[in-house]
């Protein structure tokens, strides 16, 4: 159970337990610049977050599959009151819930591979809320955690949105 040590995020230890190879390999892949998800060995569907069986067919077998890391913001929030001390220096920060381009609308029309992440700029600093919004296009970005690990986050993609962007507090929204 000795955790993987030497990695940190925002000054707090990232300690992946030795009996948790799934999370460790996920963060190691990010460290190599790859965004990988579990793919079922039976039905071949991708899944996120990490799980120990396929939520679509219950199969146990799986392998990692690289995905593009591109997607559309499905929902978001702007955190102004931080809880974890490591995030105090970051407020206000935007958390985006992204629907990846792969497997959108599967298995149901309201389903997708949804991934959480901090919305950051090219320097890794939080994007201001006026740049966030539902339907904004984003792409994965990696925050170095040290010791070979990285954390997937998101930055704005330089491409038009499929649907009009909706921003809380702008143009009468919300």
């Amino acid at each position: 159970m000795t955790p993987h040590s030497g990695s940190q995020y925002l000054g707090a230890d990232v300690a992946v337990a030795s009996n948790d190879p799934e999370h460790l390999q996920f963060l190691e892949a990010a460290g190599r610049g790859e965004f990988v998800l579990q793919q079922c060995a039976e039905c071949e569907r991708l899944r996120y977050p990490i799980g120990n069986a396929c939520p679509f067919c219950m199969a146990l077998g799986w392998q990692w599959a690289a995905v593009s890391g591109r997607g559309t913001v499905y929902s978001y929030e702007v955190v102004t009151h931080p809880i974890h001390p490591s995030f105090r220096g970051l407020v206000p920060y935007v958390i985006v819930l992204v629907e990846l381009d792969e497997q959108r609308g599967v298995p149901g029309e309201h389903d997708a591979l949804r991934v959480l992440g901090l919305l950051v700029d090219a320097e890794g600093n939080p994007e201001p809320e006026e740049r966030a919004g539902i339907n904004v296009r984003v792409q994965v970005d990696f925050a170095d955690l040290g010791d070979g690990l990285a954390l997937p986050r998101f930055r704005l993609a330089d491409e038009p949105s499929e649907f009009p962007v909706w921003r809380y507090g702008y143009d009468g929204a919300g």
């Binding site: 995020y9 707090a12 230890d13 963060l27 959480l116 954390l151 986050r153």
Partner: peptide, 25 residues
């Protein structure tokens, strides 16, 4: 200043900790 480990690698590490932060989206 809890360490990021286990399930917090899916949600907490992205800055989502309280019920307010989890439910707001």
């Amino acid at each position: 200043a809890p360490v990021f480990t286990g399930l917090s690698l899916d949600q907490g590490i992205h800055g989502m900790h309280s019920a307010a932060q989890s439910f707001a989206p």
